[in-house]
């Protein structure tokens, strides 16, 4: 069953929360909408039916068929994992077996432990198990992989794959582009200017490369190595080795340094050209990463990868085609 937004728009008084957009999420597809916290909360309230759209409508919005995975959802802390799932099984009169689902989220060893004794990531997995039990057609997930440990993230991605196979519709609402790109088939960005698809394929790249080469006729006579960024009207120069990675959103590139980001006036293509000699690598259409700072390459599935940086908190998506290039650079076959 598909989830359809038709000309959906929302404004409160004079403030536009999001302008009119249409979006079809098909069965066996995982779509992600990357947006701000405010818009996300409004969207969830609208999907829950507690708030109304200002215009347009959402098809197949019968509350009971949607399964929600909230960011701050409560679990009955004094029950064990097994008891909790039995409760949801009875409540939803589901014919899924709890044993099977516990195995899917890999809580076998903890199934007799009380929820309050689990770690945050394990609680999220128990929550995931609860919504799998509902056997719903459409899943709405709010920040599903926020603060998860690597193992739980991997389990989460394999659960998503399983949902794809069983022809479920999944819509992920998140504010992290990186997590959206890693888990979803189609990623959209929703802001006050509307809904834009975030390109994850490399189709258009050659075209833009050619354009930029044309523009780049007047080459600077002095090769200048620092990267300028703008902070409150000031221009700050950074040494390339300081940079962790560079992200591009809506054509604006942001330089990430130690968890802070700074807007930079160059495009990713220009930056890539400048930074190539410093060991930077274009790992994704919208990302350049400093290879010196990469600690780990994580393989989620056969064609979805992430790079984990040295601080072990930040991760950057790595696209399938770039994986081959990276292997080449690393000297692996």
């Amino acid at each position: 069953m598909a989830l359809k937004f038709i000309d959906a728009e929302k404004h409160i008084n004079d403030t536009i929360i999001f302008p009119s957009f249409s979006l079809d999420v098909l069965p066996n597809e995982v779509a992600a909408i990357c947006t701000s916290v405010n818009v996300r909360e409004q969207l969830i309230d609208i999907l829950l039916g507690t708030k109304l759209l200002s215009n347009g409508n959402i098809q197949n919005l019968s509350e009971k068929r949607l399964a929600f995975f909230f960011l701050n959802d409560g679990l009955y802390e004094r029950l064990s994992v097994n008891e909790l799932l039995k409760f949801y099984q009875q409540l939803y009169q589901s014919d899924e077996s709890t044993e099977n689902i516990i195995r899917i989220v890999q809580l076998d060893l903890k199934k007799n432990k009380k929820i309050k004794d689990l770690t945050y990531s394990e609680k999220k997995r128990a929550q995931l198990a609860c919504i799998l039990l509902q056997n719903s057609e459409v899943y709405i997930m709010e920040e599903p992989d926020q603060n998860l440990d690597v193992e739980s993230k991997r389990i989460f991605i394999s659960v998503l794959n399983q949902l794809r196979l069983t022809k479920k519709t999944v819509l992920i609402l998140t504010s992290h582009l990186e997590s959206a790109v890693t888990v979803a088939d189609k990623t959209y960005r929703l802001d006050e200017k509307g809904l834009h698809i975030v390109q994850t394929e490399e189709v258009q790249q050659n075209v833009s490369d050619v354009e930029i080469e044309k523009e780049d006729k007047g080459i600077q006579p002095i090769r200048f190595e620092k990267i300028p960024t703008k902070v409150n009207e000031k221009i700050v120069l950074f040494n390339p080795p300081e940079i962790d990675f560079i992200e591009s959103t809506d054509g604006q590139s942001f330089i990430h340094i130690k968890g802070e980001n700074f807007p930079c006036s160059f495009t990713l293509n220009e930056l890539e050209e400048r930074l190539l000699p410093f060991g930077f690598f274009r790992c994704h259409r919208s990302y350049i990463v400093n290879l010196q700072k990469v600690r780990e390459v994580i393989t989620w599935t056969r064609n979805s990868f992430s790079l984990v940086l040295e601080d072990e908190k930040t991760s950057v998506p790595l696209s399938k085609t770039k994986m081959a290039d990276l292997k080449g650079i690393l000297g692996l076959k």
């Binding site: 829950l48 509350e63 009971k64 929600f68 909230f70 701050n72 959802d73 409560g74 679990l75 009955y76 802390e77 949801y88 409540l91 939803y92 009169q93 609860c130």
Partner: peptide, 13 residues
């Protein structure tokens, strides 16, 4: 307080 009432309300009950 624990945010579980919302889950109950969303269930078929």
């Amino acid at each position: 307080e624990k945010n579980t009432l919302r889950g109950l309300m969303l269930s078929p009950a």
